[in-house]
Design a protein around this nucleic acid. Structure first.
Lengths: 356, 356
DNA sequence: TTGTAGGCGTTATCAG
DNA sequence: CTGATAACGCCTACAA
């Protein structure tokens, strides 16, 4: 591996001149510049970003800790974050916490050791001590998808309450009153908020929530199937199901099929998260599409902003709204309906901002 | 940010002692070790991996350049690679080339600059110069999913020829003779090989290939839909369709639905790549499941091996076999059939190895 | 317009 | 068993 000094020697200049040619950081005469360029080429010189990082104490690298890479929802998030990072000259180190706070902490430490310039995180658990330390040290960090309200951290969220409300209201509008809920992993904000939206829609329908109708599906396919089984076993079966995320919706569909139940004939179904293949499922699924790509992109952009500005006292919060896509799994309809976000939408991307 | 020297000063030892405590690289008396540990804790010391990398010229980081992160197939690949990397103490830098050789080259250069210890790559194009250079410099690199035969590089592939052959033979067995093919991005090995398997199956059926029946779907959803349209417009329509990857299969399904055609009643359909939600699609799709997770995992493991061993003269090649999953989209059946790989299978994971 | 030299934080060698 | 010191490759005052 060649160094600036090798190049310098070969070009008959000093290593600082080489450095300045590489970075365009000061004027270099045409003559010398050419000689340097040629020497670099001949030697196959490749700058050493590690040494550079050590010197300038910046790595142009962002860490991204995602709780479950294999969920297509997060795959889109990653893509959004990667695009935004790349567009700003940053590179992404990807880590998969598997919803495990211990793994999360290990990665946090590792990324910190690698001196990433900022951190993007879907928190797997609560505000554990290591996370608090990071925040106290004012390290640039952005939470996405999930909120830890006890921590003053810039955050990008989906409007889960509104999404669930829209989904369940849709069922109510169609006359359903016994609506089962397949809820996600307990103790994370998305689950709570979606449950809250479900409850609000049912309260408005003047019935309130029957606790029996809420089953935990742990945000996974098998969990969704189990929860559905559980709801089907009830004395008074629900007439409709609300599923809290894409994976659990798949589980619900397969459990329903196993019982020979038709959707929507025997059971209506609405889910959160759209699928690229939603138009190809039979029945075509009514869903609330969440802007996964934008969630990733906006998070990375916010992180870059935080990195530049230093942390403000009141961390910024961004809430992105979803879109109810009415298809046929609750009965036949057509079209898509934009959700009125609890925080007002601001532009065409249905992106809303609140906080400082 | 604290350094070893800060810790050393506080603990009243030398910085080399601190280093050795951190790395367990030589014996340190219990007394001093305790003092060091305590000082580290009090100061909130975090080792600087950048400085370490500069010194030891290893970064414990692998680069992964994927051609399309949003394809769920590659999402699984990434997960496999990440798991294997993590299990061996490596961290993954993820890049998305978007099938663009120019982007690929940029990333290659960037990762090289960051001094990753090895590189995992789904080549987007041909053997362009920069890639050749890398290989000539004997930089540890593994290709996955796609072959560039002109380059002597360790490679992990799927047995695409056998997969396509199995899929199309299945249709032949059911009596189909006019079988349309929706092929993927031109000029990449996976596409060629799948086409070859398709052709072999048709030759065996004693008809050979009708060129009109092959339409390019560019490996994307919209491409799959377009190709399907094209095949439907033919004077003599095919009675069955073979789709070259998951995305194009979705496109095909939606185009068929748009024409009011039932699967398999009006048109049989078999695709390469299984879906987690395949059991939930109606009709349930007959597919050849490709071991995406293993592709990622095995590639990373092979890369680590290459990094340790130095490159052998004849680069290793690994071929992974898929599994035909017969469901109902070609007519009703049940069960799964393991494919006889062209290279013989070796163990329960249907993994086969060839070459040195 | 260019060169010299010091130091980023760590590890490894060599003494003690 | 422990410490001093040089070096990894680069950037950036500062000097010329």
């Amino acid at each position: 591996m060649k160094t600036t000094r090798d190049v310098a020697r070969r070009a008959g200049v000093s290593s600082s001149t080489v450095s300045h040619v590489v970075n365009g950081s000061r004027f270099v005469s045409d003559d010398k510049r050419q000689r340097v360029l040629q020497a670099m080429d001949e030697l196959g010189y490749e700058p050493n970003a590690v040494a550079r990082s050590l010197k300038v104490s910046r790595s142009n690298t962002l860490g991204l800790i995602i709780s479950d890479i294999s969920n297509p929802f997060f795959a889109e998030v990653i893509r959004g974050a990667e695009d935004a990072a790349q567009a700003n000259g940053y590179t992404l180190i990807l880590c998969n916490s598997d919803e495990d706070p211990a793994k999360e902490e290990t990665y946090l430490r590792e990324l910190r050791a690698k001196r990433v310039d900022g951190l993007l995180l879907t928190p797997a658990g609560q505000a554990h001590e290591y996370l608090r330390k990071l925040v106290r040290a004012r390290f640039p960090i952005v939470f996405l998808d999930r909120d830890i309200s006890s921590l003053p951290v810039a955050t990008v969220l989906l409007d889960n309450e509104a999404a669930a409300y829209a989904a369940v209201s849709h069922l109510v509008r169609l006359g359903h009153r016994r609506i089962g809920a397949i809820s996600g992993r307990p103790f994370i904000s998305t689950t709570m908020e979606r449950l809250a939206g479900y409850a609000r829609a049912l309260r408005e329908a003047a019935d309130g929530v029957d606790e029996q109708l809420v089953a935990s599906g742990s945000s996974r396919i098998d969990g969704g199937a189990n929860a559905t089984e559980q709801l089907l076993a009830l004395d008074k079966r629900p007439t409709a199901l609300f599923s809290g995320n894409n994976l659990m919706t798949i589980g619900a569909l397969s459990a329903l099929a196993a019982h020979g139940l038709e959707v929507p004939g025997d059971m209506a179904l609405v889910g959160i998260d759209d699928f690229p293949w939603a138009d190809v499922l039979r029945p075509r699924l009514t869903t609330v599409a969440q802007p996964a790509y934008d969630l990733g992109r906006v998070s990375a952009e916010l992180l870059l902003k935080v990195m530049q500005a230093g942390l403000p006292t009141v961390p910024e919060r961004v809430v992105l709204s979803g879109t109810l896509r009415v298809r046929e799994s609750c009965g036949s309809h057509l079209g898509g309906v934009a959700i009125q976000a609890s925080a007002p939408s601001v532009d065409g991307t249905a992106l809303s901002r609140a906080g400082a």
